[in-house]
Amino acid sequence: MPKLIRNGRVVDDNAEILVLDETQAPEALNLPEGPVFVPLAVWQAHKGVLSGRPSLGVWLDSHEGVEDLAGDLDSLQAIALNFPKFTDGRAYSGAALLRSRYGFKGEIRAIGDVLRDQFFFMQRCGFDAIQPKAGKYSDAQLEEALASLQDFSTPYQAAIDQPEPLFRRAARAA
């Protein structure tokens, strides 16, 4: 079964990320059985039908704003944010906004070009599920990669995982 990192541990996960190719219109709903993340366009076309479905998430590409889901958060258990390339950093802001401004409590999953050397930043911005591409890491490598979540023990600035900056958290001697 495919694996991902959730709350700092490697776990099995069988959710499918539904990707439409050019020939598939979002209006033609043809969902697989089981847990699935649908693209924003599919969600917007079928919100009414999909809202009650268990194990349903929506995934956003990096150019899509989390604002588009602001009114729907109560209906969603999970949101995945795509990194088309690991150097495209927009999803960091997206995750931080979902957690802070919109108060989203469900799962925020990093998908796409997800590499261990960015795990630390992802975790800090509010991603609680991190899913490298299938085949990117062996099971053993993924276990090893957990270490990257601990790259830095005491960051300076406030972020989602640590909402107070160091200067409010610690009494630093002059």
Partner: peptide
């Protein structure tokens, strides 16, 4: 400097 060092949101501008 301290604020910007490893700022998690702005590492891939």
């Amino acid at each position: 400097r301290q604020w910007s060092t490893f700022h998690p949101e702005f590492a891939f501008l």
